[in-house]
Amino acid sequence: MSRHPAPEELLLDYASGALAEGPALAVALHVALDPAARRLVERLGALGGALMETEGDAALDPAVLERTLARLGDVPVEPRPAPYVPRPGFEWAPPPLARYLRPNLRWRRVLGGFEEMRLSTHDAAHQISLLRLMPGRGLPVHRHAGTEHTVVLQGGYTDSTGNFGVGDFTMGPDSEHEPIADPGDPCIALIVLEKPIVLTGPIGRWMNPLVGRGWL
């Protein structure tokens, strides 16, 4: 059980399929790393299944079954998928992230002393990035203009609200915070931002024009 679980109502949004791609990815990674969240999502799946079973059935033209059977000749029964093996260099990536890790993806240094991989998705309302912070390094003081979802994938960080380790989930909008990476492995986290964050520290304010251009 992680010390910072995702709120249950968000897990319901995820299990019912109501979340946009960015937040859905953040929750999927949390669920992959946190057995308690996974159990709840599985139970929600059972609840959805039971609701579907008990809701009754709609009349279906019998010809649909015949048409469907006729199509099966072209549809192979796929073999059981092989167990997930992370790509070299991406051992920290849980399975739901794999399809976002394009072959040419590299850590890119960003002003402010951290590294970023920007993930491309179909979700125009959210910016989805992986951030990497070396131990003892921090992000510039910032506050969130929109909702921010964060999941820690490796290492950990500490800010005024607490200590966050692998699998921990946080969701803004929040007060200003200044996360510092814990000792040990570099801290890697998925960050899903609804809107660009607004930097408020002295250097941060200077960086805001860069943020506006999508640097962060």
Partner: peptide, 22 residues
């Protein structure tokens, strides 16, 4: 049709058929 394609991924010890199809 997806149930047909993915049938080998189904594991009855982990989910009921109804949950999986849902």
């Amino acid at each position: 049709i997806m149930v047909w394609r993915k049938a080998a991924s189904f594991d009855r010890s982990r989910a009921s058929a109804g949950t999986w199809i849902y």
